[in-house]
């Protein structure tokens, strides 16, 4: 029997994304193992067990191993790993936090990431995001759970120049959000023509 093929919720958009000009780059992130971690108190013990200092400042993220640790709430984080399988990752994180009263749940397929890069992506986001994305306010390391268009998202700033963002969206909303982003980017993707 052939190996089971994986399909991404954004597979149908790959070609469209590839044709976008640099100022409004959109790419679908690859499959990434993701675990939702709940932990009441974060201290040296947790850091030692997890191998990462979970960020305690609200609305921030930090690099963590091959992935990231994103603050979701005062006792909740999203941890990603680009080298482990979801099962391995959940098992490892769960083993680390369980003795500390925490929990870990594999949510790798719950969301998919859309990487937005380019000089105009801040403008694209501003058409449907009420958060202030000015680089002085929302620089690298910032994150926010908020609404983009009509979809709930986790938004991460990956640069200090407001030109590199990661948008995590629930998989069922991925198609909507992809269409929404492409529509928002239209002003920057279409070469004006005077076809009169």
């Amino acid at each position: 029997m052939a190996e089971l093929l994986r399909t991404s919720p954004l597979q149908a958009w790959t070609d469209t994304f590839a044709r976008l000009p640099d100022p409004v780059g959109i790419t679908a992130e690859p499959f990434v193992a993701t675990v939702d971690v709940r932990l009441g108190t974060v201290g040296p013990e947790a850091s030692a067990a997890l191998g990462v200092d979970l960020p305690t400042a609200p609305n921030t993220w930090v690099p963590a191993g091959t992935g990231r640790a994103v603050w979701l709430g005062p006792d909740e984080w999203l941890l990603t790993s680009s080298t482990e399988t979801p099962e391995e990752f959940e098992a490892r994180v769960r083993a680390a936090v369980l003795p500390l009263g925490g929990s870990a749940t594999d949510v790798s397929a719950q969301r998919i990431g859309l990487r937005l890069t380019g000089a105009r992506v801040r403008d694209v986001l501003a058409t449907g995001c009420s958060i202030d994305l000015h680089p002085r306010v929302f620089g690298r390391g910032s994150s926010a759970q908020t609404t983009l268009g009509q979809a709930g998202v986790v938004l991460l700033a990956l640069s200090d120049a407001a030109d590199d963002f990661l948008v995590l969206v629930r998989s069922s909303f991925a198609g909507y959000l992809a269409d929404w982003l492409l529509d928002a980017a239209l002003e920057f993707t279409t070469t004006p023509t005077h076809d009169r």
């Binding site: 919720p9 149908a12 268009g149 009509q150 069922s172 198609g175 909507y176 269409d179 929404w180 529509d183």
Partner: peptide
Amino acid sequence: GRDRGRLFDPERVTALHE
């Protein structure tokens, strides 16, 4: 605004939609 037509209300779909 842009909340018209297909974007009026998000359509959630499952992995099998296609």
